[in-house]
Nucleic acid binder design. Structure first.
Lengths: 341, 341
DNA sequence: AAATTTTTGATTTACGTACATCAGAAATCG
DNA sequence: CGATTTCTGATGTACGTAAATCAAAAATTT
């Protein structure tokens, strides 16, 4: 059986009350006594039973998710996964609140973050727009000892505790290799559709994609990036225009959301044009397009895993505990039509 | 706050003791009273606080893992993940025991399973060799109300509670499409290296692979399957012989373990021969081969996830609880050189 | 109706921790 | 040295559940 507070008390030759004072950093313990107790804790390898402690404390974890509004399927999925999590909240002792802010809107995000200051929170998770103001607002929360986790898109140089999302540079590189290999040795143009260069995940995907394309597939030329702002209609018109503008386009990489529009644009030129298409985020639209051959591969991050991981990490940080790093690594899923879940 | 046993007692107009008798199926409650209590439980939506119950019971979960011996890296990895789990056992209240049996050995596996009968276990996890005798032995454990989970390779038609592993037909299909697309429109032979057709995962991978190859890549011909018994040395000699036997081989699919040997065989004919190679299981050897270009893609199942998932599921079953299905789905990882973890 | 059996209630202890109170001991101050 | 402050111990209650005991009530049997 693992040691308890009683064992510490016995080992250190002090009373239970003193052990409690040390463990919970309450005042009224002389330095020498405190050290004696801490030595005993280390020696017998005491680890607090979090379940029992939570029971005694009646602990709950108030958590806030800040998510972008917008009607693309990926964000819908993310919101829906947070709602799923709220259904489990009585088991997990969480109290989840969702704030919605306009996408790519720095000041709205900052305002939402600042409004959380002073609240007693076990954690804040946000889809970050990568800007200095946002970073500063996050740092303010962190300095209030509130655990902060970035979701999907990370924040450069901030002090956030954790990032629950994929390695976007690797994702871009992977997309490039898939597209390049699928195209065999063909020569032609590649068009890239992004959401916005204001978010770090999109920038990083592009960076990885461009690097591998340049280094390993010299016969493929990248056209200037289209910014669809993750909006299906805008994406459709941009891609349509690009396709009619150049007949040399043989590949498409969509690194953001709004793929509903992209799929429509590609379908409109089929079957006259042969296109190899790699996109991000598995939704009902991209899934159908993968099945019917409009798309060749979908790169995905599992929103459910991200949300659950973010919650686990925030709770652990709030308790000053560690996490199983490997378990919290969000993986890049690659879906071909054969391995759809 | 969620309702407690006290709330049930008040709602049903009975004492705490009676509620306890109903909840824990203890004798001494009249049918009408029991129904009254059960009605109250449903009405107020009581859910047992598992943490508090475990605390009160001093509950531990004795779990047995039955793993094949053998010196291929994948099984080493699997064993190592179980060891990792034992390190967390004081937190998770598990008591994990590992039994080792020779690989592909039906009677040894049956003997190990039967030896567990009558023991008070919270779960048994095994890498199944797919045979009727094994299925019968598993069914015997299940009929003793011991939760049984198959790991990595499933058992046909058994009553096991859960399978913690990937969809191997999908894995085979995916391998075929990757190999087919990477080979462009080339014509030639494909050689397939398996471990043993006695295990269901290998059979299923082959089935999926063959199906997609036949249906979508008619220019690629499958050579007879080589059975390497997951042994590196045997794999090396089989593949070497095959490569020197036919100069038309342009692709290799290794659906089992022992890839150390396969890699050596491929390297021996490089760079004269151009081969596209897809293998299963990410190990230090396959990782290095992916990096240096010997291998083009690695399909992987995350052993750590499988073990942790198996433990979560066994604990939940032992408590008669449900699981988050999506969380327990083991995903097929596809690794190119760009997205290695 | 009495005797017996079955069912129910009341109460207590326990799990490991948190937290509060009060008295007593030890240290520090004047 | 006494007075004060600081530290420590002893003790009790609580969290939500499990499990046991014993007494009392209700149902059943004779």
């Amino acid at each position: 059986m693992r040691p308890t507070v009683h064992d510490i008390a016995a080992a250190a030759g002090v009373s239970l009350a003193t052990v409690d004072r040390v463990l919970n950093q309450r005042p009224g313990v002389r330095l020498v006594t405190r050290e004696k107790v801490e030595a005993a804790i280390n020696e017998i390898g005491y680890i607090r039973d979090v379940a029992a402690a939570n029971l005694a404390k009646g602990r709950v974890y108030p958590i806030v998710f800040i998510l972008p509004t917008g009607d693309n399927s990926f964000m819908h999925g993310l919101r829906s996964e947070v709602h799923q999590a709220t259904l489990r909240s009585s088991f997990e002792r969480t109290e989840i609140r969702i704030l919605e802010v306009p996408p790519f809107d720095v000041s709205a995000l900052v305002a939402a973050l600042d409004a959380l200051q002073g609240q007693d929170l076990a954690g804040v998770a946000l889809v970050a727009t990568d800007a200095p103001e946002v970073r500063a607002a996050v740092d303010r929360l962190v300095s209030e000892r509130i655990p902060v986790v970035t979701l999907v898109s990370d924040l450069t140089d901030s002090t956030r505790h954790h990032y629950a999302g994929i390695d976007n540079i690797a994702a871009g590189r992977t997309a490039a290799r898939l597209l390049g290999r699928f195209l065999g040795g063909q020569e032609g143009d590649i068009t890239v559709l992004a959401g916005s260069m204001l978010v770090r995940d999109h920038r990083e995907r592009l960076e990885g994609f461009s690097a591998v394309m340049a280094a390993e597939f010299p016969k493929l030329r990248l056209l200037p990036v289209l910014e669809g702002r993750d909006d299906p209609e805008r994406a459709r018109s941009l891609v349509s225009k690009a396709l009619s503008g150049s007949t040399k386009i043989i590949g498409v990489y969509s690194l953001g959301a709004g793929n509903r529009g992209l799929i429509a644009a590609v379908k409109a030129v089929r079957p006259e044009r042969e296109l190899t298409v790699v996109v991000h985020e598995l939704t009902q639209h991209t899934r159908a397009a993968l099945m019917d051959g409009t798309i060749d591969a979908v790169l995905n991050q599992d929103a459910g895993h991200e949300i659950r991981s973010a919650i686990r990490v925030m709770k652990a940080k709030a308790d000053g505990q560690g996490v199983i790093a490997d378990q919290e690594r969000i993986r890049l899923d690659i879906f071909l039509k054969d391995n759809l879940p």
